[in-house]
Amino acid sequence: MSVVVVAPGQGSQTPGFLEPWLAEPRFAEHLGALADAAGLDLVAHGTVSDADTIRDTAVAQPLIVAASLLAFGALAGHRDRLAGVAGHSVGEFAAAAAAGILSEADALALVRERGTAMAEAAALEATGMSAVIGGDESELLAKLDDLGLSPANYNGGGQLVVAGDLAALAQLAGNPPTGARVIPLQVAGAFHTRYMQPAVERLRAAAAGVTVNDPAVTVWTNKDGSTVASGAAFVDLLVGQVANPVRWDLCMAAFEKAGVTGLVELAPAGALVGLAKRGLKGLPTVAVKTPDDLPAAIALIENS
């Protein structure tokens, strides 16, 4: 039992990415139930909606979590063989459902609330996010302090996503740390920073009304890469995560320390496998992008 299953975060969606899944009736039926829970037409958003539509935070977040749960549904029979589960940012809601902490319906309802609340918080000020690749982390953090910016995602493998005022992000791009590249991201606001505090309060109120169970498998948290044995504690972390940095670097370090020997990324896959290839060099990985990738994922789980 040494394979970890991970769920991606916002930005991993692309137009039409659910079409291969909907070609199979079992996945189409599952997505219909998830769409009902989210109160969104996820079938349309996963097939015909354009890039701008699915970039909207209020749409992107439920769409991504639903896709991850579609993929996990095909792997759930192998859950007892897993080392555990984890998610990146909004992917933690998919991880919570995969671990049995939340029902799929409650996870989707909370994600819908989270996405809407974060979109509204983002509209209050002109903020954004940029990925910083390479360079010295201490030099970067000092520069962020000078510019009033914040680290948002410590992704490991030499990548740190920063967030804050758009003008300050432009200054960083114009004068990056030595040896670093600054890449603006197509997101609506400064997620995982103090700018999202209004969304935290709204999500906390929504989370108070859901049924929470302790995890049935090991689950790691973005807070610090630790494992969490209490479902209630994990949901508290899910709420606070909206306005706090994602420490995916510490999650990957924890996977390595736990002796994980393989990683399967749920749909819409690719980003976390890419980070693993840099931060966990040599670790076997499978990116589940379409149902055709499921046999390889199952083989990795069963043979590790």
Score class of each variant (00 low, 15 high):
4 V>C: 12
5 V>A: 05
5 V>I: 13
6 V>W: 03
6 V>F: 05
7 A>N: 10
8 P>R: 01
9 G>D: 07
10 Q>V: 14
12 S>Y: 08
14 T>N: 13
16 G>V: 08
17 F>R: 00
20 P>Q: 02
21 W>G: 06
25 P>Y: 07
26 R>M: 13
28 A>R: 15
34 L>N: 01
35 A>T: 10
41 D>F: 09
42 L>Y: 07
56 D>A: 15
58 A>R: 14
59 V>Q: 01
62 P>C: 11
63 L>N: 04
64 I>M: 11
65 V>R: 03
66 A>R: 01
69 L>S: 04
69 L>R: 01
71 A>H: 04
73 G>L: 06
73 G>E: 02
75 L>W: 02
77 G>S: 11
80 D>Q: 13
87 G>D: 06
93 F>A: 09
93 F>I: 10
95 A>W: 02
96 A>R: 00
96 A>E: 03
99 A>H: 00
100 G>N: 04
103 S>L: 08
104 E>C: 13
107 A>H: 03
108 L>N: 02
114 R>N: 08
115 G>T: 10
116 T>R: 15
119 A>C: 05
122 A>T: 10
127 T>N: 07
130 S>V: 11
132 V>M: 06
133 I>P: 00
135 G>P: 07
137 E>H: 11
138 S>C: 06
139 E>K: 10
141 L>Q: 02
143 K>Q: 15
146 D>T: 15
147 L>Y: 06
150 S>I: 02
152 A>Q: 01
157 G>K: 04
158 G>W: 09
158 G>Y: 12
160 L>C: 12
160 L>K: 00
161 V>T: 11
162 V>F: 09
167 A>P: 03
175 N>Q: 14
177 P>V: 14
179 G>Q: 07
180 A>P: 06
182 V>P: 05
183 I>F: 13
184 P>K: 09
192 H>A: 05
194 R>H: 14
198 P>A: 01
210 V>A: 04
210 V>S: 03
211 T>A: 15
218 T>L: 06
222 N>P: 04
223 K>Q: 14
231 G>H: 05
233 A>I: 13
235 V>Q: 03
236 D>Q: 12
236 D>R: 04
241 Q>I: 08
243 A>G: 03
248 W>S: 02
256 E>A: 15
257 K>R: 15
261 T>V: 11
264 V>G: 00
265 E>W: 05
266 L>W: 03
267 A>M: 09
267 A>Q: 00
268 P>W: 05
269 A>F: 07
269 A>K: 02
280 L>K: 02
282 G>L: 11
282 G>Y: 08
283 L>N: 02
287 A>Q: 04
291 P>F: 10
293 D>Y: 12
294 L>E: 07
299 A>H: 13
299 A>F: 11
300 L>V: 12
301 I>K: 00
304 S>T: 14
